[in-house]
Nucleic acid binder design. Sequence first.
DNA 1: AGCACGCCGACT
DNA 2: GTCGGCGTGCTC
Length: 742
Amino acid sequence: MLVKRSGSADKPKGPGAPPRVLRVALPVPLPQSFDYLAGTADGALPGCRVRVPFGSGERIGIVTGPGGPADGPAVLKPVHEVLDREPVFDSELWRTLSWAAAYYHFPLGEVLNAALPAPLRAGEPWPTLEEPGLAITAAGRDAFAAKPLRAGPGRDVLAALEAGPMPTSALRQQLGRGGSAAMRRLLQRGWIGATSLPPSRPARPVLAGPPLHPEQQAVITAIEGCAEGYSGHLLEGITGSGKTEVYLRLIDAALERGRQALVLVPEIALTPQTLRRFRERLAAPVLPLHSGLGERERARAWAQARSGQPCVVLGTRSAIFTPLPRAGLIVVDEEHDGSYKQGDGFRYHARDLALVRGKALDVPVLLGSATPSLETLALAAEGRLRHHRLIERRGLAKPPLLRLLDLRNQRLVGGLAPTAVQALRDTLARGEQALVFRNRRGFAPALGCAQCGHVWECPRCDRPYTLHRQPPGLICHHCGGRARMPSSCPSCSSTALGGRGLGTERIEAELAEVFPKQRILRIDRDSMRAAGRLDATLAEIETGGPAILVGTQLLAKGHDWPALSLVVIADADSGLLSPDFRAPEHLAQLLTQVAGRAGRGDRPGTVLVQTRQPQHPFWSRWLGGGYRAVADAELRERREGGLPPFQHQALLAAEARDPRALDVFFAAVMALPGEREGVGLIGPLPAPMPRRAGHHRRQLLLECTTRAPLHRLLSGWMPRLYALPQARRVRWSLDVDPLDLY
DNA sequence: AGCACGCCGACT
DNA sequence: GTCGGCGTGCTC
């Protein structure tokens, strides 16, 4: 079974070439690939999956090329099976993924694995492009024709299938709730049967778009006027300015040329409404791709894109790994959104990879946002992206009125200044809706003793517990740890315990006392835990009627709420005082986002922002020039402060139960050889949160004004780091271009 | 990451 | 006397 490597001391016996060797990337957290005897797998192309023996078991790996000379063991095991005739990754995706593995200093095998849909990862054959569907049977047709059936989902199913077979997913979508049960019943009765349908969808009517206004037309002309091939674009357009219409026109043009398009959207934005809007307007299949989708469907969409037929892939972060052999355009909507960055494992940034893929595919890339990230604005300023703007709001809607409320020396009710409470009252009196935004769920961010000031902390994280009222208890929002509600203070025995600060639960409760007759809807992870609850509540808001909405980030994005005319930001100060240098940028993005929710339609909305730092320069910028003024000032400060995007960073973080393991680990890291010229090493320092879930956390920040020295150093370090025995005692990770330093 | 091998406690 | 704890080391 085992054959000696041709490069070793023993020459292969007999005539003929030495045994061929294949190099294979495996999904293991190791920096190297592994060599196998090709055997019958000889000729397997890079990018093909193979089943290989590994350790005591078997793994699915990806061929990366021919094996190298005699590094590695003298004796090689043979490839067990080749699973693909054609590479699963086309040449462009293969190059991009190899580049990404090098750029993020993450094992190639794991990168390839992350890019592959689970069934393919598990070694299953390529899914057929055919889609599971349903068709009416002769018995069903007879039954449908013979007697008038009672109205209901059952009859709807038969009526729909009378016209011809349909994909199961489309049918389910068309029928909504109750459809699935009806389909099951009819299948049992033999009135309908399962079938499979070709991927080309039945022609459906494509709606014409609204007429373009001149701004939109100018942007489209400018982008289409670019030379063939790659070009990078930033589309900065305020909420309601019609960015999506620009996307749709450009996608449509790409489809006209027989090309494919990839559209990335943030996690919360891939809703049935979004999908419907794209499907209504585009003449090619629109393939959704997100984590909620079943793995089978995901694999089929992937395969369909891989086949090269014109289609639009509409997906979240991981959709950036869809093969697009006939690509024509890549769009990243809301490019500033944090959900494009993978937070663990292979920590890629889908927006950055979109630009890389655009270059590799030689197609235009369009980054759209009302509030572009400073990274993207800097690229535009450098001339590496063309900057387009949409500044008119459609429908003559007026921009919202912005007003700062000084919280100092005010009597607060539910955390709100009297002016804000009065504004709520007026809004409700007009039959309109108001939104109170507070990014802390729970009743209060801490529980304290009124007598001695003692604050209850999570013993595993050293951070205050969040006080919850329903159900009552203390919960650590960092590790999920719970503690029972104490009845007295352990240090002074006082029973005068109280919540410190405000969470959404408390705002809701206190507002309910002021407005006992009004509808108050709290929207956060706690109140919306039940499945479908969020959708139902959002729908209720959309139907209108006076209400106060109290919520967290969950509310910041979402749909158009026609009745919403007042937004109160309960506490903007965390964005001004946070040690995270990106906090002001994120605050400005959030303010713009929620301001865009207020006053759609003919009336201008009002945004009240509460702060105890009214003199902070952030506010004069914000009130004077909006997001751009804040962004410009922040960019200046980042440049002066030597911070991203004018400095490139990588964060080596480690955590361990035993802090001594961290001492030893970082000592070994600091002793690693490597050219450090030009690279700033900051640390090792305790992480901003030094303990979490019982683990001590420490980090080393690497900085450099240019990428090359930083990456040279990391390339030298990584293989050694994996080999370090001290690294086995800690959980470590490397984050290239980290978005937060936690 | 798995997974095996490898030496020290409370159970049939 | 065994099952099993997770420490340590390897995987072409």
